[in-house]
């Protein structure tokens, strides 16, 4: 598909929407919107759920804007592809242990847990780290299988290995990317991972028919 897809970045108040939009626009996608509007989201071909923030705050904002039901319809019933980034990826989980137990969107079974590491590892995990790709298709088709991406998080998504498309090693081996049917998520920030991140976006959007 050309650059004519309707891409909607879900705006729920705490994401770094402008950063994500900058990176995707760089690739030439013209029909790109940042929105929380139900009609705009219904018209989208593909959704991006960005994230910077604490899990409970993010989920609360999503629910306050009545986006959970809309997203459930678009993603679960209509099977629209969605890419969650950082907290956006963690929200795909059943629940999170950040600041108490909180329910997620429950699209991919699993729990978001605190990175509990030996003292030689600083937490949050901030910086460029290599990933270990397990499933190349569709996210990593343009990247080397040990590409580095920018991470910035204190929690990670603990889920069944059948959903994991890439791992990252930082004291423990944790989930760097997940996928289940039309649902995709990355713990790192492709919008902030320079060329490697731009390649990932291109692979993702190109994979959508």
């Amino acid at each position: 598909m050309s650059n004519a897809q309707n891409i909607v970045i879900i705006d729920y108040g705490v994401g770094n929407t402008h950063s994500v939009s900058n990176a995707i626009s760089f690739l030439g996608y013209k029909k790109l919107k940042i929105s929380a509007d139900v009609n705009t989201i219904t018209d989208a071909d593909v959704l991006v759920l960005p994230g910077v923030g604490a899990f409970d705050e993010a989920v609360k904002n999503l629910r306050d804007r009545h986006l959970e039901a809309i997203l459930n319809e678009q993603v679960i019933i209509k099977k629209k592809p969605i890419l969650g980034i950082c907290v956006g990826m963690q929200m795909l989980a059943s629940h999170s242990e950040e600041n108490g137990i909180h329910q997620g969107l429950n699209w991919i079974e699993g729990t978001v847990k605190k990175l509990d590491l030996p003292s030689s590892f600083a937490v949050p995990h901030v910086g460029w780290n290599n990933v270990i790709v397990k499933k190349e298709e569709p996210l990593f088709t343009r990247n080397d299988l040990d590409s580095n991406f920018y991470f910035d998080h204190s929690y990670y998504f603990d889920c069944d290995s059948k959903y994991v498309s890439a791992y990252c090693d930082y004291g423990i081996k944790f989930t760097a990317a997940v996928q289940r049917e039309n649902i995709f998520g990355v713990q790192f920030h492709p919008e902030k991972s320079q060329t490697n991140g731009l390649k990932l976006f291109r692979s993702f959007f190109n994979s959508i028919k």
Partner: peptide, 8 residues
Amino acid sequence: AKIFGDQC
């Protein structure tokens, strides 16, 4: 930190 996460 509560709203945006400590990493921010």
